[in-house]
Structure formats: C-alpha cells, structure tokens
C-alpha cells in the first residue's frame, strides 16, 4: 500500500472507518446506541456541528467498511480527534481515521 506516504490535509470533517456492520445499522436500537456512543466520545475533542451515519436502504447499497462522518466546528478540533481515535477499539474493531471534503459532506456526497 502506498497509503503510508501520502500528505495529510486536515478538514473539519472527520471520517471514521471500520466502525460498524450493515447488520448493526439495520437494527434501530443499535443504530441509536452507536450514534450516542460516537457523539459522547467525539465531543471530548471539540464542538460537533453534525454527524452522518449512512444506513443501508432499498435503493442504496453500502460498502461493508462502516463509515461515520463527524463535522467539527474547527479544523483544529477534528485534528485532535483524528489523532486520538486512530487505533482505538470500537465494537472490537480497530478504528481508522481520515478527513473528508467539506464540500462533498455538505452536498451529502458521502
């Protein structure tokens, strides 16, 4: 993987990967719990403006990579979370962090 040497360009949108399974997202109770758990942890690093946890729907098939998007008020805040959450365990899975384009996030292109 070439991924190691790429440049890191922070944005306000934190992308959390490898977090959840399709099965969990389909369960309403689990979905609410996941949202709550993620909010509770992520607010420790800054002010959250919005959060998006895509769920599988009839017309939209999701990849099995379990994505969660967090919009922070500032880039400094998302940078702290980006570092702090990488490698943490969630649901017995290893959390991977990335930044996402602010324009795409706001346009709901996720």
């Amino acid at each position: 993987y070439q991924i190691v040497n790429g440049k890191i360009e922070p944005t306000k949108i934190l992308l959390l990967l490898n977090m959840v399974t399709e099965e969990e997202l389909l369960n309403d109770q689990f979905y609410e719990e996941i949202r709550e758990d993620v909010m509770n942890e992520c607010k420790n690093f800054g002010n959250i403006l919005s959060i998006k946890i895509p769920r599988p729907t009839e017309n939209k098939e999701l990849s099995n990579v379990g994505k969660i998007y967090i919009e922070y008020e500032t880039t400094d805040q998302s940078m702290i979370a980006y570092k702090a959450l990488a490698g943490r365990k969630f649901n017995e899975r290893t959390v991977v962090t990335a930044y996402y384009s602010e324009m795409q996030y706001l346009a709901d292109d996720i």
Binding site: I3, A86, G87, A98
Partner: peptide
C-alpha cells in the same frame, strides 16, 4: 496505518 492521508 490507522491514520489515512488526504486525496484518497
């Protein structure tokens, strides 16, 4: 790595 770079 668990931190991904930009522009992927």
């Amino acid at each position: 790595p668990t931190n991904l770079p930009a522009r992927l």
